[in-house]
Amino acid sequence: MSIFGKSVFGNKATDSIPAPAAGDGAAAPEAAVRKSDDEWRQELTPEEYHVLRQAGTERPYTGEYVDTHTEGVYQCRACGAELFRSNEKFDSHCGWPSFWAPLADGTVRYIHDRTLGMERVEVRCSNCDSHLGHVFAGEGYGTPTDQRYCINSVSLRLVPRDAGESEAAQS
């Protein structure tokens, strides 16, 4: 069961296991990639660390992928897990890259976020538990899922479609 009582918005991604109630002994799923805080600080730039590991947000309209239309796959900048495809990216004009669904089931997980006095759904990488952004529904964008995955550019790394083909040809 998700935080909404049914599949999170009914999209491709799987439900996150809700945080255990105090004293019930249930554990949240663990990320495959586990590193110490010091290891993350050594591997990531200060901005990447702030967003990915401290759930920060980059300033709107400043990220490298806001207006990008390059075909390819967007990976988690922290661990390299494939998260989104360019075919699901759309122009929402909100200041951050927007996608209408994740790449596949289980690539992201959801957390009920009540910070800043708002009710939101945080999106995290399922592989390393890094903060990516938030997902919103019912905003009228006319996407196939009527959702907007509002993702920080600094959380992502775009692997252009042509780059993957040229690497395969060299092998």
Rank of each mutant, 00 (worst) to 15 (best):
R53C: 01
T115C: 06
V121T: 15
T45H: 10
G72T: 11
P160M: 05
V135T: 10
T57F: 00
T57Y: 00
I151H: 02
Y149V: 00
E48D: 02
Y49T: 00
P102W: 09
Y49H: 12
E122S: 03
S126G: 11
W40Q: 00
G138F: 02
T45E: 09
T70S: 06
E58F: 01
G95C: 08
A81D: 13
E82V: 00
E71R: 14
C128R: 06
G56C: 09
D91K: 14
G117S: 06
Y49L: 00
E82L: 01
R41S: 02
C94M: 12
G133P: 09
N87Y: 13
R41T: 00
D129Y: 03
C79I: 08
Y149I: 03
E119S: 07
Q42L: 13
L103W: 01
V123A: 01
S130T: 02
R120S: 01
D113K: 07
Y49P: 04
G138S: 06
T70P: 06
F84L: 13
C76Y: 14
E43M: 09
Q54P: 05
Q42K: 15
N87L: 11
C128A: 02
V123I: 08
T70N: 04
I151T: 01
T70R: 11
E71M: 10
T70D: 13
A78G: 15
F90S: 02
P60M: 09
C94A: 07
Q75A: 12
R148T: 07
H112L: 05
Q147R: 12
D162Q: 14
P144S: 11
P46Y: 09
D38S: 15
L156C: 09
R59Q: 13
G140P: 12
A55T: 05
P97F: 10
H69S: 15
E88V: 11
T115W: 07
A101V: 15
T107M: 08
N87S: 14
A55K: 15
F84I: 13
G142D: 12
L44R: 14
Q54M: 14
V66K: 09
Y65D: 12
P160T: 08
E47H: 10
L52T: 03
D105I: 13
K35G: 00
G140M: 12
A137N: 11
Q75G: 02
F136R: 14
F84P: 11
N127H: 08
R85S: 15
D91F: 08
V51Q: 12
H69Y: 04
A137F: 10
C94R: 09
E122F: 04
C128D: 02
T115H: 10
P60Y: 08
P60D: 03
V154K: 10
L158T: 08
E58W: 00
C150Y: 12
C150P: 08
H134C: 06
C128S: 04
H69G: 14
T45N: 07
E58P: 09
K35P: 01
D38A: 15
Q42R: 15
C79M: 10
D113P: 06
G142Y: 14
R53A: 04
P46E: 11
F84Q: 12
